[in-house]
Design a protein around this nucleic acid. Structure first.
Lengths: 149, 149
DNA sequence: TTGTATTTAATGTAATTACATTTAATTTTG
DNA sequence: CAAAATTAAATGTAATTACATTAAATACAA
């Protein structure tokens, strides 16, 4: 559905104005879908994002700061996100040996197992996008990258 | 900057997975920029969105429900957003004559004046996207619309 | 009509976020 | 080295959001 009819707004000032609204709206839309997907697992999008970042480290620990640099939403409070993940026993937090200001955060086997479960859920969900050709996805990624400069 | 280097993530499972992350990240990015822009005006993005929706009505009042249908983030609490706008004297809220359950919300001249000011701010800001050709913007809008089906 | 269901908005609340401040450790500078 | 500046994370807080519930009005159905 065109963004114009989606928002019942016929008169965008420019294609640019429309793109800005479209990017925000579509981002919210995808985020909302993701949230719904994660709800049964008692996991927020931000927490999920942190878990996946940690998995990407292949067992290496990361400091909170390093996590923030890779987060999709960098304004959210990584320290408290890690709190939640520690509470749920999906990650381990410990003092960083070489810098006692920092903490090392590590994903635990339980966290990895959860992610593996979610990989399947995501895979099923992503079928929703099967109408997008590979070429469309490549172009979309290019244009989004271009938009951010 | 490519989303991969932006998030320091080299190994996306697929172009699709990358696009999903890219849409969320770029949406957050634009939203963050907008927020910064609006901060000096003591206006949140959601409030700004509601104000613009009301302006689009050209003086006609809207119910809260009608506003929600057009909001960029439909999960936020429109009733309380309107509260804030009423507090700041930018909109008027009154009982709807034909349906006393509903309320009519109207933008006030002060609200319109604020938006006019912000039009200029947005216009200046949008120069940030002058590297995007018209054709790119059209294509981006098409692809985002396509993504949502 | 009268009771039931639905609709519209407001509200209570718990959790989350934004933003500033604090604490503790490390680095830099004189 | 000691003092000052910087860095990393945690914390306090006010505002916002998510979610469920409530209240009031309207629509519907027997």
């Amino acid at each position: 559905m065109e963004i114009a009819s989606e928002l019942q707004q016929s008169n965008f000032a420019s294609e640019e104005a429309k793109a800005i609204v479209n990017v925000i709206f579509t981002g919210n839309w995808v985020a909302y879908e993701q949230q719904e997907l994660l709800k049964p697992y008692d996991l927020s999008m931000q927490q999920y994002n942190v878990l996946r970042i940690l998995r990407g480290q292949n067992g290496k620990p990361m400091t909170v700061l390093a996590i923030i640099e890779r987060m999709l939403d960098r304004t959210s409070n990584a320290s408290r996100l890690v709190d939640k993940l520690v509470e749920k026993k999906w990650v381990l937090r410990r003092e960083c040996p070489n810098d006692r200001r920092a903490v090392d955060v590590l994903i635990l086997p339980e966290g990895l197992a959860l992610l593996q479960q979610l990989d399947e859920v995501q895979h099923q969900w992503s079928k929703r996008f099967s109408h997008m050709k590979q070429h469309d996805l490549v172009k979309l990624n290019e244009l989004l990258d271009l938009l951010r400069n």
